[in-house]
Design a protein around this nucleic acid. Structure first.
Lengths: 191, 191
DNA sequence: TCCTTAAGTGGAAGTTTCTCCACTTAGTTA
DNA sequence: TAACTAAGTGGAGAAACTTCCACTTAAGGA
């Protein structure tokens, strides 16, 4: 079980079906016209369900964006938890850390718009996700291994902070992805 | 002239008067019931102007929150530009940097709610402010002095990133302000 | 198979946010 | 002081967001 969704009572079959319909409809609409010009009632219409149903599954646009990112997030998690090195286990912690940050930048490049919506629709949305917690604890493990003395908890947040979608988009105005990667590497390598 | 507002055509006298009325009304409402339960039409009613007028001055709640923070921001800017050391000129750059970060944390403690609204109402709102630019260029100057080789531009953003209101609020759930200050100090001192 | 019940559904109705534009007024020019 | 013009104004109305609840249905006993 991936830690993205908190599993309460399992969904009923019809509900799961509707969730799929909604996500598919949303994906199509996003592909067609971007995320910004996307209203939840439009999604409902396209999916052939009532607005209430959409709101029951996805409290806001951010939650829907998260759902659209779900598959990608899943792959990312598998890659750094159990995939091949240097991202996955097997490589030295420092290399894994570096690989993690670079992969994260790559994701921001390919899915920046969705990540932005997912993170900024609600203040602090980014942090209440299981995804953030997992990324954080992964970094804590790596940092503790590299530098046992450090305040790994804070350091992990500090490394993830520049990777907030909005912050990244801003930096991207004056830097290339490679420069940002270099900057991140620099940030933790000075040990 | 402080760099907070981009000065286009100067405001007409009546418009400036209304801006004052709006800001005062907003300040009262915020004091009475917090920022969250505050609708712009309420502010308009309290200020005795039309909704359209409020929107002309302040495109959204974030802009209004910024206006409420204006005086505090002004004082902060004066303190690190021309105030007494260690925040202002006269102290070694490393000490000034440390003082800046600590002062920033203090502001987050006292004005966190308003800063949150100001920064998160619109994605990237934080970065388009003159305030952010000024903080950034101040840090760039200090960092370049401490460590001429570094990519001061990126480093400055990376130091400001954990000070985003939402990020800070999140970290505050598990750390004291002092721990955060220590973490920040740690972050740049490893030179 | 029937009953029970808790989850799910739709969409009307209530909020809030924001735009738009016909009208008003401050400030300037002759 | 009259005329001009560009900025400012107000609030109706459109659009989006969200809640609510009477009704429906799936799933799991008895």
């Amino acid at each position: 079980m991936l830690p993205i969704a908190g599993a309460g009572t399992p969904e009923r079959a019809d509900a799961a079906r509707n969730r799929q319909k909604i996500v598919h409809a949303a994906a199509k609409l996003v592909a067609a016209k971007g995320i910004d010009g996307l209203a939840l009632d439009e999604v409902a219409a396209k999916a052939g369900v009532g607005i209430g149903t959409v709101y029951r599954r996805f409290p806001d646009k951010g939650a829907l964006a998260q759902a659209l990112l779900d598959e990608n997030e899943r792959e990312f998690q598998e890659a750094f938890i159990s995939g091949p090195p240097p991202l996955g286990p097997g490589a030295p912690a420092a290399q894994r850390l570096s690989a993690f940050l670079e992969k994260y930048v790559d994701r921001l490049e390919t899915h920046g718009e969705l990540l932005m919506v997912a993170e900024t629709e609600t203040p602090m949305a980014r942090f209440v996700t299981g995804a953030y917690r997992l990324h954080h604890s992964h970094l804590v493990a790596l940092i503790s291994e590299i530098e046992p003395e450090a305040d790994a908890h804070f350091r992990a947040d500090a490394l993830l902070a520049p990777l907030a979608a909005a912050q990244y988009a801003y930096q991207r105005q004056s830097m290339t992805p490679e420069q940002i990667k270099a900057g991140l590497r620099d940030l933790y390598q000075r040990t």
